[in-house]
Simulated scan of single mutants.
Amino acid sequence: MLALIPLGRAFDAVRLADAIVHRAVGSDDSCVAGDRLAQYLGDGPVMHDPKFHRYYVLVPPGTAETWGTPVAECLGEGVYLGVPRVERTEPDEHPQAPYWVLPMTRPGHLCKPDDVLALAVAGGGVTGEDVL
């Protein structure tokens, strides 16, 4: 079950292709990726949508207005994001359903846009598969 949350108020979301994240963290294993994402992003909230091969990194509202890299798209005002329940932190009986790789630990604790950009750049070059 997902809740549709309007972006641009409490947070925006940077959408990253699996390929970018897995190259950046050096692994496609979900446990390893989660640990390394926590290091890159200071334990800020990240969810994974395995069905569509995307990660969503939550960043401060307004980030979409100044985001300027073709490696990843920042979604903001006017977009709704489907987010899983807070307790869904691993791909259990529904392996294609979104889950939190790094859940939100407290209100307002979001990832820093510069850290997300560094992660995207560390993921390597841009290919047609990478840009969503």
Rank of each mutant, 00 (worst) to 15 (best):
Y99K: 06
V46R: 03
V121F: 04
D35L: 09
D35P: 02
G123K: 02
L2S: 00
D35G: 11
D29H: 10
G8C: 01
E73D: 13
I20W: 01
R106G: 08
I5W: 01
L132D: 10
P98Q: 14
G123N: 02
F11Y: 14
A13S: 01
A17V: 02
V79I: 07
D92N: 07
P91V: 11
Y55G: 09
P98C: 14
R85H: 13
V131Y: 02
G78H: 07
A33I: 08
G26F: 05
L110K: 03
P107A: 10
A64R: 05
A3E: 12
A72D: 14
L81F: 01
G42I: 05
P91D: 13
R54H: 15
M104K: 04
I20Q: 05
M47V: 06
P113Q: 10
M47F: 11
G82H: 08
P70F: 05
P84K: 14
G124T: 05
Y55M: 08
L16V: 07
L81Y: 02
E73W: 06
C31W: 14
P70Y: 06
C111Q: 04
E73C: 06
L110C: 06
S27I: 04
L4K: 00
A64C: 06
G26W: 03
H48A: 13
V14A: 10
P61K: 14
T63W: 02
L4M: 07
